[in-house]
Amino acid sequence: MKRAVIAVVLLLLFGAARLPYEIHLQKLQHQAGFNSTSLDLPLRQQLGQMSFVAALSGFRSLVAAILYIDAYDTWQKLEWGRLAGLLQTVTTLQPKSIVYWDMAAWHMAWNASIAALENKAQPSKILREREQRKYWELGKKFYEDGLRNNPDSAELWKNLAVLERDKFEDHAAAAKAFETSSTKPNAYPYVRRFAVYELAKIPGREHEAYDRLKALYAEGRSERSPTLIHLLKQLEEKLGIPADQRIKETNAH
């Protein structure tokens, strides 16, 4: 009994001695982006008891992987509501994983939205379109939440821009997102051009777009894509640029 008491006291002393170090290490790990996922009550409700315990026990990525495989199966069965819930859980468990955010947004904004529009069980076109828009919004939310957790992801910024361009047809938002993507590490070289393409489609910003397209054109052959030349020629006409200042290139489109 005496030894047990001594042992508990020793353990408590050891605990007190390591406390400042553990607090410091936890802070350091959080700053580096580790263990910052909040495993709270709503997540517990989404996961169920067993998976929640597994996630708490250091197997968060494994639980996320298993749920993602389940999500893939759900996608094949076209169960969109359940798929949205599963993807929400997967991204909550692994918020630093770009792939999960990207695929979640893509499933919602592209696959689920088209399925909603072509839903034969809903005779009203207005309601189908409303449902379609709901999934676009959900996809956008996945990108935005993903970017809140990974603000330096060039991939997520680029794909958000594509969503704004192709689904919402919001060229200002698309231009801004492409622009942001181009400033991030490992950005695709073409996103800088894409930002200017979108700028050219915004009424009232033609002059700005023309100047930037011209600047890209001046950078050399690698930037002179057929789209860039086509847009430049269009703006030259629209803005009435003098003939001697126009580019010599023939219109590729």
């Binding site: 553990e22 982006g33 580790f34 250091g58 197997f59 990525s61 630093k96 994983s97 770009i98």
Partner: peptide, 15 residues
């Protein structure tokens, strides 16, 4: 503090 050693969840995400 075993959570301090659960770094692989985030390592696979690229941190």
């Amino acid at each position: 503090d075993l959570q301090a050693f659960s770094l692989t969840d985030d390592v696979v995400a690229g941190i």
